[in-house]
């Protein structure tokens, strides 16, 4: 039975309105409600379902970030993960943490924990990078299947349905492998009260990138973060004639 490692990121909750800092150095995160990246939630759900179907022996949830990331790990544990690993990175450093760093961390942990499968969300909704799965596969030299919407388990191989522009693509990958979860892979559960309580007693190991021998020196510099342009308000016109003349005025006709 497989050991599964799932990467989860703490991001600003998608129901919260994002505000850009006045000095344009980033977005306001203090006092803003965070939760688990929705695609990572799908990844956790998939791993937990594997465990329920006796396809996985252990599910390990890993999060790289500040102390508060432990809340995200607790959520994963409440959903059914067995143990957590918190790779502690200060808030300041976390802002410049990139997929290249995270994939090296995940790859190292995957080797240390002797896992057979890594599942991550296809992208984080804050930076929209969509690189972690690919790079983790690259670092480990493992087959990688991205944008999974269906995963079927065979003997030492997986049949994966991928969401691509033209429709669906079915591929086979040998394990060990890296997968990235797309939106339609599953619908994550809500953690139940007994499991939320049990999750408090599950082990969470704290570790630093230094312990893993991974250099997280920033490779990027954020020059400016800005709000998207404000959309012009529409107007209601009294009749079709006015509409036509307006369209002509604007050179659309």
């Amino acid at each position: 039975m497989a050991r599964v490692l799932v990467g989860i990121k703490r991001v600003i909750d998608y129901a919260v309105k994002i505000r850009v800092k006045s000095d344009k150095s980033g977005v306001v995160v203090d006092g803003v409600k965070h939760s688990m990246n929705p695609f990572d939630e799908i990844a956790i759900e998939e791993a937990v379902r594997m465990k329920e179907k006796k396809l996985a022996k252990e599910v390990i949830a890993v999060s790289c970030g500040p102390t508060a990331s432990q809340e995200t790990i607790r959520t994963a544990l409440a959903m059914g993960a067995d143990k957590g690993i918190h790779v502690e990175i200060s808030g300041n450093e976390a802002e410049f943490l990139q997929p290249i760093h995270v994939s090296k961390i995940l790859a190292k942990l995957a080797q240390d924990e002797k896992v057979d499968l890594i599942i991550v969300g296809k992208q984080a909704i804050d930076d929209d990078c969509n690189q972690t799965a690919q790079m983790t596969g690259g670092v480990l030299g493992w087959p990688t299947a991205t944008f999974c919407s269906k995963i079927e388990h065979g003997q030492n191989e997986l049949t994966v349905t991928r969401e691509i522009d033209g429709g669906l693509e079915v591929v086979k990958v040998k394990t060990p492998a890296v997968l990235s979860a797309d939106l339609r892979l599953n619908e994550p559960r809500y953690a139940t009260l007994p499991n939320i309580m049990k999750a408090k007693k599950k082990p969470v190991k704290k570790i630093s990138p230094k312990d893993l021998g991974i250099d997280i020196t920033p490779r990027i510099q954020i020059i400016s973060v800005e709000d998207p342009p404000v959309r012009q308000a529409g107007s209601i016109l009294p009749d079709v004639d006015t509409l036509i003349s307006k369209l002509k005025e604007g050179g659309h006709l």
Binding site: D13, Y14, A15, K33, S35, Y190, A191, L193, I196
Partner: peptide, 21 residues
């Protein structure tokens, strides 16, 4: 839960989950 009044449940402070519930 301990008193056996409630059989099942979930709780959240995530705005997205609150919205869905």
């Amino acid at each position: 839960m301990e008193l056996g009044i409630v059989d099942d449940g979930t709780v959240t402070s995530d705005p997205s989950k609150i919205q869905k519930i």
